[in-house]
């Protein structure tokens, strides 16, 4: 027993070191706890206030590029308006009135801080609970999908972008209709990959990849990117498709948060056993 205590005394520095390291690693491993998300929404608020100021200056300097981007998007939207279509009715005797109901609305927001070179990237945006944002709402940018909101504070929200390995969304190959989970592998912020595409799918380089509407995060048909290459997965049974992402996370400024107006009704169906 005496020797045991002697040993303990001699290696007390090592033991203390190991104790501190195990606390740190426990923290790393348990990063998805409820307490953390509570805590994050508090620190998000503090950080957001500080960075909002810097982001304003930055936004001013980038006004020109942003305007061009918005103008391009306006053109695209205008093209999809009813007035851009010609209505031709050849001999039909009934006219369909509108039976569409609005499902999605959008809230525009500015990025106030973001990272794209880390493994776990996050984005802070300048709208929060007061603007009606909630967790698990999708976020899209002018050129495509950005990510999903993970934490909301009063005035700010934290977005997990698709360049974070913790987020998986469902992606669809627009040509074939096959779909699979889009998962980022943590290397290049311009690329991501889709797993579990059947090997008989005819995937061509340059095919468009879009959201498929199976998740409640995004409407169907929002751009994700273009197919860059395909390869067999490690299990040899499915294809893995490398996608070059259409959103450039290095210069993302303006985003839109997608609000699904029918989410409660959809969730109530999903919840049912």
């Amino acid at each position: 027993m005496r020797y045991f205590f002697l040993l303990l005394k001699r290696s007390r520095v090592l033991l203390y070191f190991l104790l501190l390291e195990s606390i740190a690693f426990a923290w790393i491993i348990n990063k998805r706890s409820y307490q953390r998300s509570q805590f994050l929404s508090a620190t998000t608020e503090i950080k957001g206030n500080f960075q909002g100021l810097a982001a304003q200056t930055k936004a001013y300097l980038n006004l020109k590029e942003e305007n061009e981007q918005l103008a391009r998007e306006n053109i695209r939207l205008r093209e999809s308006l009813d007035e851009s279509f010609i209505f031709q009715n050849f001999g039909a005797d009934t006219i369909n009135s509108r039976t569409y109901k609005q499902r999605y609305t959008y809230v525009d927001a500015q990025v106030i801080s973001s990272s794209h070179f880390k493994v776990e990237n996050y984005i802070l945006i300048n709208k929060g609970r007061l603007s009606g944002l909630e967790e698990n709402m999708g976020v899209i940018g002018p050129s495509g999908v950005v990510g999903v909101i993970s934490n909301v504070s009063k005035h700010f929200a934290r977005v997990i972008p698709i360049i974070n390995p913790n987020l998986r969304i469902s992606a669809e190959l627009a040509q074939d209709g096959y779909f699979g989970p889009l998962r980022w592998l943590g290397e290049n912020y311009r690329e991501s990959s889709i797993q579990d595409i059947p090997p008989y799918a005819n995937v061509q380089t340059g095919d468009t990849v879009k959201t498929d509407g199976r998740s409640s995060f995004f409407p169907r048909g929002i751009n994700i990117g273009l197919v860059k290459s395909t390869s067999l997965q490690a299990d040899q049974n499915f294809l893995e498709v490398t996608v070059s992402l259409s959103t450039d996370f290095a210069k993302l400024r303006k985003v839109y948060v997608v609000k699904d107006l029918w989410i409660n009704e959809l969730d109530s169906l999903n919840m049912r056993p």
Binding site: I23, A24, F25, W27, F39, T43, K47, E120, Y122
Partner: peptide, 11 residues
Amino acid sequence: VFEGGYGVHTA
């Protein structure tokens, strides 16, 4: 805490 690094910096 401020970077959202979850213990990476601590370790």
